[in-house]
Amino acid sequence: MSTADATPTVDVTEPAAEQALDLLEGEGMDTDVAGLRLFVQQGGCAGLSYGMRFDGAPEDDDDVVEAHGLRVFVDPASEQYVEGSVLTYETGLENAGFDVENPNVSRECGCGESFRT
C-alpha cells in the first residue's frame, strides 16, 4: 500500500477525483472505503488496454493511492504498467471522460485505446 512517504503509483488530478467521487456517491458507495480500480488488461491492437471500475474496498495486495479524497486501487500486476501515470478527466463534446497519461507507453494504437510499454 502507498504511504505518505512513498511516491504514489499514480497521481490523480483534482477534476478527475471530483468526477469519480461524484460517480461513487451516485452509486451509493462509501467513499471512505470504496474507490476507483485502475487496471491493465490484455487487449487492443497495441497489446494492452486500461480498465476502470468502482470497487467497494481494496484487495489485500493492492496499492492504494489517495488523492483529493479519492481512493485509487492498483493491483500488483498492473502496477508495473501504470507507475508514474496521471489520471485526468476531460470535459467537452468529444473525448469526454477519464484518461491515463502514462510516461511508460512506447506505442499507442491509432485510436488511443490500447498501448505497449
Rank of each mutant, 00 (worst) to 15 (best):
E18Y: 00
L21D: 01
F39Y: 15
Y50R: 03
A6C: 07
A96H: 06
L70H: 03
N104V: 06
G97H: 11
E101K: 14
D61S: 14
A34V: 11
Q41Y: 10
M29Q: 14
D30E: 11
V82C: 05
Q41S: 13
A6L: 14
D75A: 07
S49H: 11
A16N: 04
F39R: 12
G28D: 10
T91N: 03
V86H: 02
V33A: 12
V33K: 14
R37I: 08
D30Q: 04
F115C: 04
D62A: 10
F115S: 09
D60G: 04
L36P: 04
N102E: 03
L70A: 03
D62W: 01
D99W: 05
M52V: 15
Q42N: 13
Q41R: 14
A57G: 07
E83F: 14
T13E: 06
P76V: 03
L36D: 05
G35Y: 01
Q19K: 15
S78Y: 01
V72S: 05
F115L: 05
V86G: 00
R53E: 15
Q80I: 13
F39L: 15
E101H: 14
G35I: 08
L38Q: 06
G110K: 04
E94Q: 13
E83H: 12
N104C: 04
R116G: 01
T117P: 09
C109E: 02
V10L: 14
A16E: 02
V12T: 02
G56M: 08
T91R: 14
G84Y: 06
L93M: 09
A67R: 15
E108V: 10
S49K: 15
T9D: 03
V12W: 00
E66I: 15
D22N: 11
P58M: 00
V12K: 02
Q42P: 02
H68S: 10
T7E: 15
G56A: 15
V64D: 03
A6D: 12
D63C: 04
T88F: 00
A96F: 05
V100D: 03
G44D: 03
P15K: 01
V40E: 01
G44Y: 02
Y50M: 14
G35N: 04
A20P: 04
F73L: 11
G112Q: 00
P15M: 00
M29D: 06
S49F: 09
A20M: 11
Y81D: 05
V86S: 08
D75R: 10
P103S: 01
A34N: 10
D99E: 07
N102P: 10
Q19T: 12
R107G: 00
T13C: 07
A6G: 04
F54K: 13
E101G: 05
T91Q: 09
P58R: 01
E66N: 06
G97K: 10
E25P: 02
P15Q: 00
F98Q: 05
A4Y: 08
E25A: 15
V82M: 07
G112C: 01
E27M: 13
Q19F: 00
S2V: 14
T9S: 10
E66Y: 06
Y50K: 00
D75V: 09
A17K: 02
T7V: 13
G97Y: 11
D60N: 08
Y81A: 13
G69M: 10
V64H: 03
G44S: 09
S49D: 09
V82Q: 07
G97V: 12
